[in-house]
Simulated scan of single mutants.
Amino acid sequence: MSHMHGEEDGEADDRTAARTPLPAGSRVVVAGASGLIGSALTRSLTADGHEVVRLVRRAPRGPGEVRWDPEAGRVDTAGLVGCAALVNLAGAGVASRRWTEAYRERIRNSRVLGTRTLAEAVAALDEPPSVFVNGSAIGYYGWTGDRAVDESAAPGEGFLPSLVVEWEAATSAAREAGVRTVFARTGLVVARGGGAWGPLFPLFTAGLGGRMGDGSQYWSFISLYDEVAALRHLIGTPSLSGPVNLTAPAPLTNREITAAMGRVLHRPTLFTVPASVLRLVLGGLSGDVLGSTRALPTRLLESGFTFQYPEIEEAVRAALR
């Protein structure tokens, strides 16, 4: 998919040259470093010799930790001094429990208030980081059915789209201070350790996997490896700001993904989970599982990013390794 962008004319070389990898030993501040994506990103940066500073809600246990209270609007700004990049992946888990009214409020506050806290802290620094990568979600687009959308599309209707609009707007202090700000609109991350995909692996391994509802809904997936590589690409690509979809190039229907999971795990996928059962078990999240968002990574590909695992079977195999 990425080689459709005319590499014969030398354009690719320019795009690759436009990347400025982090100087060796750079300080990167990560909020949400203990989560699925945050811990993988932290491992990747540390392995390359960068210094990762984790934002924590408890008393720091060492020099690599800085305290913050996202909802009270407090962060120890001294710990942010000298950082080259700030990556915010913090927020109450969207997939972790039923969406009661109270939990919706918690999801909202943890993302919107936490983002505002960091944006204001960054704006107050004498020497702010060169980039603020703020986690976001393809939930922005809402239900698109089989219509493909990219970053040029308008927000959808409902709780998640309105949440994402507010969440991205909460970065305004950083943007107004001239900090390059990127919204990493992540899709469904294919990983065993958590996220939307975590519960699917044991289910399919037990031979209980199957399509959900009628299976026609699109799932915009991305392997955990590509998610981390894409976040690092956002940090290192000065031309990128605003929304960038972090999803593999070819989203698939739930039916196609179910079949691929069955093939890789060598298990039958005969079960069908009726929509009514999913609504009962998942509450508000059932909209995500039954809803259809067909998001394309237009800006990521145009900026020269190459996917390591663009196909679902490769992504599932990578998650099993």
Rank of each mutant, 00 (worst) to 15 (best):
F159D: 06
R67L: 02
D69S: 09
D150H: 01
V165D: 01
V81A: 15
V182H: 07
G79E: 09
A119F: 02
G142V: 09
G195Y: 03
G135S: 14
P161D: 06
L80I: 08
T205E: 15
W143T: 14
P129S: 13
S96V: 14
T144I: 08
G79T: 06
G158V: 07
T205Q: 15
W167G: 02
S172M: 08
E166Q: 10
G207S: 06
R106V: 08
V87F: 07
S110K: 06
V66H: 09
C83H: 05
R67F: 03
D150C: 09
A119G: 07
F132N: 04
S136G: 11
A137H: 03
S96P: 01
W143A: 14
W68G: 00
V190G: 02
W99N: 13
V149H: 00
V165G: 02
V149N: 00
P70W: 01
E101Y: 12
I138T: 10
E157G: 04
R106E: 15
T181L: 05
A154V: 09
A154P: 12
D126R: 14
L163V: 05
E120L: 07
V81H: 04
W99I: 12
A124M: 03
T144E: 07
A153D: 03
I107S: 03
E168I: 03
G198P: 05
P161N: 11
R147D: 12
I107N: 01
A174E: 08
A124E: 11
F132R: 07
T205H: 12
P161T: 06
A177L: 11
D126E: 14
A154T: 10
E120M: 04
G135T: 07
A92G: 07
A119R: 09
A121C: 08
V190I: 15
P202D: 14
G145E: 11
G158K: 10
G64S: 14
V122M: 11
G135L: 04
A121L: 08
E176Q: 15
P202E: 13
R175D: 01
P70K: 03
A184Y: 04
V94D: 03
A119M: 09
A78R: 12
R192M: 12
G194Y: 07
R74F: 14
V112N: 00
D126W: 01
C83N: 09
E127P: 01
A119S: 13
N88A: 05
D69Y: 01
T181G: 06
T181W: 07
A123T: 04
V190E: 02
A169E: 12
D126F: 00
R97S: 14
G114D: 08
A85G: 07
A191V: 05
R116P: 03
G207T: 09
R180M: 04
G195L: 08
E166C: 06
A174M: 10
E157R: 15
E151I: 01
L113K: 14
F204L: 09
S172V: 09
A119P: 10
A191I: 03
I138Y: 00
V164H: 04
G158D: 06
E166V: 02
V66Q: 06
A137G: 15
G187I: 06
G139P: 05
V122Y: 07
Y141P: 02
G178E: 04
S130R: 14
F159S: 13
E65S: 14
A177N: 08
V66N: 08
T117E: 01
G139N: 04
T186R: 01
S172C: 01
T181E: 08
N134T: 14
A137M: 06
